[in-house]
Structure formats: C-alpha cells, structure tokens
C-alpha cells in the first residue's frame, strides 16, 4: 500500500494530506513559498505513484486561504495529475472552498473550473 503523505502547515506552505488507505486527499492553508517547486515536488511524486493504482473514488479538498501566483501553476499541476487518473471506472472530483466574501479565492476556483476536465464544486464556507 502506498504510504500516506502528510506535511505540516507552516506560515508559507499549506497542510497536505494524501492518504490512499483512508481515501482522504486534502490541501489546506497558505501557499506562498518563494521556491514553490521545491515544496510541491513530493506531492507530484506521490500522485504519480498513486495514479498507477488509484482508488475507485478520489475526492480532493482544496481549502486554501491564500496562494501566490507561482503556487497557482503548481496547484494546477496537481489537478492535471488528477485528470489523468480519471477513467470510466474511477471517479475524480475536487471541492474548492472559499471564505464568504473572499472574491480572490472564489475567482481562482472558478478559473480552474473553467479549464479543467474533471468536476470541481465551488463551495462557500
């Protein structure tokens, strides 16, 4: 079984939980590292392994308070990796949360939704 990936939240990087066994996939908090590549690399590696034998259902929770533009590209990369998992047998979808009144995060979610081929629900908290 693929071991879970859990990364503690810092003031500049988000909380990550990718747990195949419990079927929980989460990204929460802030993401504004200067070198975002470095932070996201283990997540991409994990998802690549996961894509070899994904669960029947993969539901990613995105509950981000803030992320900078270089994280934006890498968050999109996560979504692209999820898109690749989706087949006729597997269900993949994303929930994008935003705080009421937080136009920036809501808009960012809607933008992702407009360019993704997997379902994304935009949820006001």
């Amino acid at each position: 079984m693929l071991t879970k990936l859990e990364i503690r939240e810092t003031r500049e990087t988000p909380y990550i939980l990718l747990d195949k066994e419990k079927n929980i996939f989460k990204i929460e908090g802030n993401s504004l590292p200067e070198n975002a590549n470095h932070f996201f690399l283990p997540i991409f590696k994990w998802l690549d392994k996961y894509s070899l034998s994904p669960n029947k259902e993969t539901h990613l929770i995105c509950d981000l308070e803030y992320f900078n533009s270089s994280s934006a590209k890498l968050i999109y990369e996560i979504f692209l990796k999820l898109e690749k998992i989706k087949t006729n047998e597997t269900k993949v979808w994303i929930s994008w949360f935003f705080e009421s009144g937080d136009v920036l995060i809501e808009e960012k979610g809607l933008e992702y939704k407009s360019i993704l081929y997997i379902p994304m629900e935009i949820v006001e908290k």
Binding site: L32, E34, Y66, N68, S69, S70, E99, G101, D102, V103, L104, I105
Partner: peptide, 17 residues
C-alpha cells in the same frame, strides 16, 4: 471589506516576491 483586503494582500505578496 474582506475581499479588498485579500486583493491587496495578493498584490503585496506578488510585488515583494
């Protein structure tokens, strides 16, 4: 309002970085 503050925060982060 909260939306405006977040926007400003975003502009600041991008400019500082």
């Amino acid at each position: 309002d909260a939306g405006y503050k977040k926007k400003m925060y975003h502009i600041l982060v991008e400019l500082l970085q």
